[in-house]
């Protein structure tokens, strides 16, 4: 699938706006810690290529919270970190409110909630931008081998290609980073691009 330079620019900028707004929620959850964001990247990838990239950035064992969404365009949003980082994140979020021995018990629940808040913030920002409703399913947490997490999140898809939009985040004062990604099936990319171009034209007429 070929996208023009302007279409890629619009996709990245829109995603940047969504994640930028979500960073405020993430910062609030982290007790006001500043969240640093990377610039967005956009790539078409097969699921195998995606797995190789994730192994490279987050290691073999990962933790991902995902939400599928549908509306003017359909896809899956995911927050992903390495397994060690996920426990660190929970410690920062829950701070001293929970005794250490109960932390790992709470880990799954806390991570799912963090994912839910952040992913919904991104999706809501996009829905507002397009003045339409995007329906999200409940957040799902998957941990373990990278391939397993990806299969659980995106389904089995040997050779299937997805559009992957990603931004990395890190906490300014901690050695902790994670990724926020959007995965769109190629069929949905056309719809999204058409929406973006419509939005862009409307803005220029206003």
């Amino acid at each position: 699938m070929n996208l023009s330079e302007t279409q890629i620019d619009l996709l990245k900028e829109t995603f940047n706006i969504g994640v930028g707004q979500a960073a405020a929620s993430l910062s609030e959850l982290a007790g006001g810690e500043e969240i640093m964001l990377s610039v967005p990247t956009l790539e078409f990838k097969t699921l195998q290529e995606l797995e190789t990239d994730i192994r490279h950035s987050s290691g073999d064992q990962v933790c991902g919270v995902s939400e599928t969404f549908r509306g003017p365009f359909d896809g899956t949003a995911m927050m992903l970190y390495s397994e060690e980082e996920s426990l660190e994140l929970v410690k920062i979020m829950l701070g001293e409110t929970i005794p250490v021995e109960e932390l790992s018990e709470m880990e799954g629940e806390a991570l799912t909630e963090v994912g839910n808040i952040v992913l919904n913030a991104v999706i809501s920002a996009l829905a507002d931008l397009f003045e339409s409703e995007i329906i999200t399913e409940v957040p799902l947490l998957h941990t373990g081998e990278c391939a397993h997490v990806l299969e659980k999140t995106l389904g089995d898809g040997t050779g299937r290609a997805v559009l992957h939009l990603q931004m990395d985040f890190s906490l300014a004062s901690q050695n902790l980073e994670g990724h926020i990604g959007f995965f769109l099936d190629v069929a949905s990319v056309d719809t999204l691009v058409a929406q973006l171009e419509h939005y862009f034209r409307k803005m220029l007429e206003s």
Binding site: G20, Q21, A23, S27, E34
Partner: peptide
């Protein structure tokens, strides 16, 4: 001009 509405920013 930013979408990043964190208090820190």
């Amino acid at each position: 001009c930013t979408a990043n509405i964190q208090d820190a920013v």
